[in-house]
Simulated scan of single mutants.
Amino acid sequence: MLNIADTLYNWCREARPFALATVIQVSGSAPLPPGTALAVDTDGQVVGSISGGCVEGAVYELCQQVLVDHGTPARARFGYSDDDAFAVGLTCGGEIDVLVQRVEPTAQPHLTMALEEAVSGRPIALAQIVDGPEHLLGRTLSLLGDGSAYDGTLGGENEDRAVAAQARALLRAGRTARVEVGGDADTCPEKLSVLVHTHATRPRMLIFGAIDFAAALSQAGHFLGYRVTVCDARPVFATPARFPHADEIVVDWPHRYLEHTEVDARTALCVLTHDAKFDIPLLRLALGLPLGYIGAMGSRRTHDHRLDALRETGVPEDQLARLHSPIGLDLGAHTPEETALSITAEIIAHANHGTSLPLSRGTGPIHHPAPDSHTSATRTAVQRPPGSPDQRHPGYP
């Protein structure tokens, strides 16, 4: 539901009841992930989308019915039927389960606060019961900030504590996922399936080297939702005028800046300096940190020399295996803009466990399930299929 947080927040502030349709489970190839929502208010206004248009009409009717009934939430499954060409379903061949519930903002004041946090860009996790006893369906619990406190209830203190613990981990990872709790007669007798929606702070992209490639990469990173920092030790190059899309420009030695800045498992670090006096101290430090992606620009010869230098400083082989160098995917890039696409494509593939192959050469579902948060944080290298092309970048011998 956080995909439409701004509108829902306004409706909650106005105490306007609405029907909320949430994708609670996806099977096979489907256009949008769990947690995506569509809402309809009592005037018939609609916001959001759950399928890119395939089943919106049917879901809209369900929402209107739930608003009229004032009663039990409705559940529906939409898929593709070869038997009935006129049936409502997903043309992509997958299946989605949808929960439709009536929301009374005055009965859930914590929901207004949670939506306000999301609209303001602050971290929030919102847990929603999507399967379990009928009288509990749709109940929500919210965690603000670092998740140390929660508001709302899912039915009981034990259930709330159990869900809050899992929601904190998902919030740290910035991942929306479904969790199961309960079924234990001694602690949580009610077995519940809970969808935890998360709105985490923007992940960071750290770009070292104030060059033309960095200007293009900062724009691409900004477009993808990263909080972009460009760092260079040379003040004449590291200026806001040269990097209008960066959130932060830092004049400092790269390794010294990295030592004192905050990073996490979602941070992408891109070294574009192509200068050993900057690269080696920076990469030696970076490869020992829990970063999501570490890439360095340069030719294959530069890469080999760089690895030798890092080994001499004591960097172990398992850490060197985390380094993506030469940086990016082989798109045949020549311009800084094309190279920026090459780099961000590799970052996306790494984060989502993609193969980096053309979809036309693959089989199976197009849409992959969200990666496990632990796997994402600890995975060390993109696995390229045998025979996939090498990476090249212009301007380096």
Rank of each mutant, 00 (worst) to 15 (best):
H70Y: 10
R300N: 13
L38K: 05
L341S: 05
T344L: 14
E259G: 07
L224V: 08
P385E: 12
A381T: 14
M1L: 11
G152M: 10
A58H: 06
V26I: 10
D6K: 09
L154P: 04
H353A: 15
H334V: 15
P336A: 00
A177H: 08
R301K: 12
L99G: 00
H367W: 08
V230A: 01
R168V: 12
L90G: 04
L217T: 13
S388T: 09
A286R: 01
P290Q: 07
G288F: 04
D252A: 15
I294T: 13
T112I: 02
R139N: 08
S27H: 15
T91Q: 12
P33K: 07
E104H: 00
L310H: 10
E190Y: 07
D390C: 08
A214Q: 00
A15Q: 15
A107H: 09
P371S: 06
K277T: 08
A345F: 02
F208Y: 15
E159I: 06
I366P: 03
P189V: 03
Y226P: 06
A276V: 12
L192E: 11
G147E: 02
H350A: 14
L8K: 00
A149G: 11
H110N: 06
G364C: 04
D97P: 05
L195F: 11
R242K: 13
P386Y: 04
E159T: 12
S342E: 11
G138N: 06
Y396R: 15
V181D: 07
D184R: 12
G94S: 00
P33L: 04
H199S: 12
R175F: 06
P281Y: 08
Q45G: 09
V26K: 09
A216G: 02
R361V: 14
P73M: 05
G174P: 01
A169Q: 15
H353Y: 10
C12F: 00
E248H: 12
M113P: 00
S376T: 14
S27V: 13
R266H: 08
I4C: 03
L137Y: 00
A296F: 02
G156I: 09
G132K: 00
I366L: 09
R227V: 01
G79W: 05
A345S: 13
V66C: 01
V46R: 08
H110G: 02
G52S: 05
H367D: 01
R139A: 05
P105V: 00
L136T: 05
N352Y: 15
L170R: 03
A107M: 02
W11Y: 05
G225Q: 01
Q45C: 10
G182T: 01
G387H: 04
W11E: 02
R306N: 01
T273D: 03
V47W: 11
G145D: 13
L32H: 05
S148G: 14
G57M: 05
P240H: 08
V236M: 11
V181N: 02
L331H: 02
